[in-house]
Every structure is written in C-alpha cells, then in structure tokens.
Design a protein around this nucleic acid. Sequence first.
DNA 1: GGTTAAATGTGGGTCCTGTT
DNA 2: AACAGGACCCACATTTAACC
Length: 300
Amino acid sequence: MKTNTLKEKTVHGNAMFPLKIYSIIDSESTYSLSYHWHDEVEIIYVEEGEIIFNIDMKPIKVNANECLFINSHKLHSAYAINSIESIHHAIVFDMNILSSSIYDYCQSKYIDPLLNSTLSFPMLIDKTCLCGNNILTEIRGLIDIYYGKHQGWELSVKASLLKIISFIADQDKFIKNTSINLTSNDYKVERIKIILDYIYKNYKNKIYIDELAKEANMNSQYFCRFFKSLTGKSPISYINHYRIEKAAKLLQTQNYKVMEICFIVGFDNFSYFIKKFKEYKNCTPSEYKKMGPSQNYKVK
DNA sequence: GGTTAAATGTGGGTCCTGTT
DNA sequence: AACAGGACCCACATTTAACC
C-alpha cells in the first residue's frame, strides 16, 4: 500500500516510554487536524466544549466529559465546531508499552489481540456507558499523573492504562474483529488514504485533479464526487485548507516573509493565497504572524 | 457501483492600486 | 519594500443527468 507519508512518523513520547499527551486549549474555535494515521492507539478526552472527529471518514461529535478511542491504523482528523471553544487531551501511546514477555492471560486475552487488531477499543465512551464514569475518572487521573511527573509516574500511567482496559473488558465493550474481509467503507478508506498521502507528499507543487484521479484509478469527474462524499470537501478546497494550515504553522514558528511562505506551501499566486488565508483563518497572514504562536490554540 | 458528456461554477493567474 | 486586496477573465473543477 502506498501510504508511507500519510502515516505519521513522529515518535510519541520516546523509545523508552512511547506515550505522549497533547493538551489543546482552543480558545478561538479554530482547531483543525488533517487526516492521518499511525500505529499508536489514541485516547481523546474532551474536557470542555465539543469537537468533531472523523474516523475512517465517519464524523463523531465528542462532547465535554466524553472520550473517544482511536484504534491503531485508523485514518482520523478533527476540527472545532463553529464558535465552540474547547479543551481536549490526546493520549497517544504504543500498545507495546503494555506488553509483557510472559505470555499470561493479560497478554493472550487483551494485549496481543489489541496489537494484532483482532480486538479493538470501543469508539465513544460517555457517562451513559456502565463503565463510562470509571474510565473518565481514570483518564483524568492519568493526565494529572503525566503532568505531575512524580517519582514513578511511568508506573502509574501504565497502571491507569491497564485499569482502563479492565473497565472495558468488565463491560464486554471490546469489539471483536473475527473477519478480515474489507467492508465497502474499508475499501473506500484504503483508496482515500492513497490520495491523501499523495496530497501530503506533493502539496508544495501544483496538483491537478487528473493526477489524483489517476492515483485512485478513477476518472476525474467520478473522483471529485468520490472524494467529496468521503471528506466533505472538494479535492481543491481540501488541498487549499491543508496548505493554509501548513502556512499558518510556518507563520508562527519560522521567520519567513509572508510571500515566501505562500510559495513554500504550494500557492503560486500571492493574491489568491491571502484570499484563501482570510477565508480559513478570518485574518490576513501578517495579522496571524503578529498574533504569535499561542493565540489561536495552545498545545501544553 | 462506475463512467461519460455537457453545463455550470470556481479556482487561480494577471495586473493594478492602496496601505503600512 | 512588503503586504493587502479588487477586478477581470479563462482554464479547470465540479455537478448533473443519463447511461451501462
């Protein structure tokens, strides 16, 4: 499968402890995360507000005090809902962190099946789930432990993850994947992964719809319809949005001129770049640059 | 579900002026 | 000088409807 760049290569945490928490305070309701996937499992906990997550092209609204499990290899993205501020935490970890060299019941019944995808985490957990409150309390505790970094915090984090797994097991909420046959949606997701991978690899250059359609083995007209039906955006507006997100990051982290950034992210028309930037960010690039790195959303 | 042609809409290139 | 943005226009993207 040609999805090597779409697949995130970041090591979350470090090799000795592959777990990292990203806490995002989105006070401007501008949060947006492009489609990507990784080997790690991700637990999203929304502390305040609401956020829309797309998992395998299906939108899921996660409200305050709910959590979402994103299983490994799942294509996902996220975005803020208009005018709703939010705070959320993303716990990203390698399932191997819980592996043990002893092939005990924990390993054979839960960890191994989660690693080889014959078992999956349930997606959304809210207060109505019988185990919901326990899981949410454990997640809040895990986040506090992570940031507290007291002696032995790594052990406490692992213990919390195991407890979360035990709560899910207790209510029989794990999803058993007995068949490896791809559903129609899985097939579409695999095709869209190839296209998004192509976009992420080539966004700095001119991208034609015909090229993308060729990658997907479709004609261009059908491709546009296919792409929009899954992502909710036309290919060009998806590419533009992706380029603007890249430009926004460069504006706040690098000292390039606005015009240089315009060309770096693949626009070859400065005027059009400003027009699109305003459309997505509600301000001009230079205004955005002046705001500094922490005005739109903060990553703890 | 997938393809095609035609119609329609939009992206984006060029040029320009105004503002900081 | 660098940046912002309006007007115009055409190529290309997207939608629609009909078809396999």
